[in-house]
Design a protein around this nucleic acid. Structure first.
Lengths: 267, 267
DNA sequence: CACTCGCGTTCCATTCAACGGCATCGTGCC
DNA sequence: GGCACGATGCCGTTGAATGGAACGCGAGTG
């Protein structure tokens, strides 16, 4: 108190010229979560988002106070219900889903397997809804997850009806069939897409992990633009494409009509 | 051009001591959306969030760049699919939903009306999932929306099984039955809650806009804590509570068991 | 028992990113 | 033309955001 030397010229508190807008950093925190890790400790959160721990804590604290994040008794962060509430207002998810659900329910009742609804986001399909019966075969994809455009039924439909330049860019990349990781020829894929457009339906077969068939059809919005893809996934032995095709197509048309489409077949 | 007086000591650019953290302001932008207004112009966004237009534009731009917001051809902002993706990782919404869906599907098939799944968030119930048949009676509540705890079936269950202090606080407020806006006596509500706990079921009747009955049961998580409420809503004339009660209770127990609850009845 | 390690939290001096009033442009309406 | 409204660009100022250091704590280890 009387004689404090304090010779140390401590350079504490330098603000480094680390120039990421705060909003982006906050969003980076949210992006640190994924299906494999829905709950993260502060350290994990900081590491996965590339933000120093103390900053991560401060930001996460704000997000938590608002309800975008929640914190469990064990200190782990999870995505908050409040964020889910506002996010459920996303037109491409909720509006669509709301219209499609009853029809999806019908399809599920008939097929007793899986019914999928997906939209395109960049070079991926995003699974907006999935109905699955108890006894249905295991599936690879989760609601909220992303699917490849070239090796799923819904993906093929979304790609086939996408703008030509989107297709062009997508086809330019080397593509592998998932999950087998077999190369796909661009020419073959182009032919497939042409078939899809001609038929207004995509058929897709997968052998592993278990043989199944997917039949998908496009859904159009009020501007007659392709808005989503609807599909049914069934085990191969039970596949009767002659029956599934019309059922899926009919449901997709009904959804399109309810969305306000005037040409629910696309062409 | 040559001789610009510019005598005005223009105090342009004063940063007002407006002290809301950036993150909060960004979140305020998100909170500006609701079910009634899922698409907003920049001006509306600014007004509803209480943020000056230019700041709102800057923030909204960042959110848009990340995908938390999207902007339509007409310049209106909507909630983005990217935000929906991360939000769908919310355990209280997605994890729960994923387990509950097949059972909800079963209930819907039997009742051919509405099946609801809700969790409590503060003094409200948040509707996490709703299955509705085509021909079902109109409903008041939307997925992602909030319901009053004291005048819905799911709400009564969530309230009845909530912590005593939560109940205490909730009951202290003056309460009105929605949507009739008739006062509810605290004593009567307490009795109702006791009945719910004793039976493990809530029954709720509403006359307007159309007479319907809701039967709800609690769902418990792995820590045997009440996590959600499951309910069936049917028109009054079709209500056979003797049949509905056991069906809902059975489904709720099945979901609880799958969540890891050891005492899926609560007590 | 001492030591280390990792995690979460608090503290704080520095500084640059965020701020919003203003100007401007575009558009639809009277 | 005049007006209202919405959207966007500009920019001088400043306080909110920053992250390293320090600390407390518990678990695992020698």
């Amino acid at each position: 108190m009387t004689d404090v030397p304090s010779p140390a010229p401590r350079v504490r508190g330098r603000r480094p010229p680390q120039g990421d807008p705060v909003v982006d950093r906050a969003l980076a925190l949210l992006a640190a979560f994924d299906a494999a890790r829905p709950a993260l400790t502060l350290g994990e959160l900081a590491r996965r988002s590339g933000i120093p721990t103390s900053s991560a804590l401060r930001l996460a604290g704000r997000l938590q106070a608002w309800g975008a994040l929640e914190r469990g008794a064990d200190g782990r962060f999870t995505v908050g219900l409040r964020l889910w509430e506002v996010a459920s207002l996303a037109p491409r998810a909720r509006g669509l889903r709301q219209v499609a659900m009853p029809y999806m329910g019908d399809l599920e009742e008939v097929t007793r397997q899986h019914v999928l609804l997906a939209v395109r986001e960049g070079g991926d399909a995003v699974l907006v809804e999935r109905l699955s019966a108890h006894a249905a075969t295991p599936v690879l994809y989760q609601v909220g997850g992303r699917l490849p455009l070239h090796s799923t039924g819904v993906g093929l439909v979304l790609l086939a009806y996408a703008d030509p330049d989107v297709q062009q860019e997508y086809l330019a990349r080397p593509l592998l069939h998932e999950p087998e990781r077999v190369p796909v020829s661009e020419a073959a894929l182009r032919r497939t897409l042409a078939d899809v457009r001609r038929e207004g339906l995509a058929h897709f077969r997968r052998k592993v992990p278990n043989p199944l068939v997917s039949v998908a059809a496009p859904v159009f919005d009020a501007q007659d633009r392709p808005a989503a893809a609807l599909s049914v996934v069934v085990p191969e032995e039970r596949a009767d494409a002659r029956l599934l095709g019309p059922a899926v197509r009919t449901a997709a048309r009904a959804i399109s009509r309810e969305l306000g489409a005037r040409r629910p077949l696309g062409r």
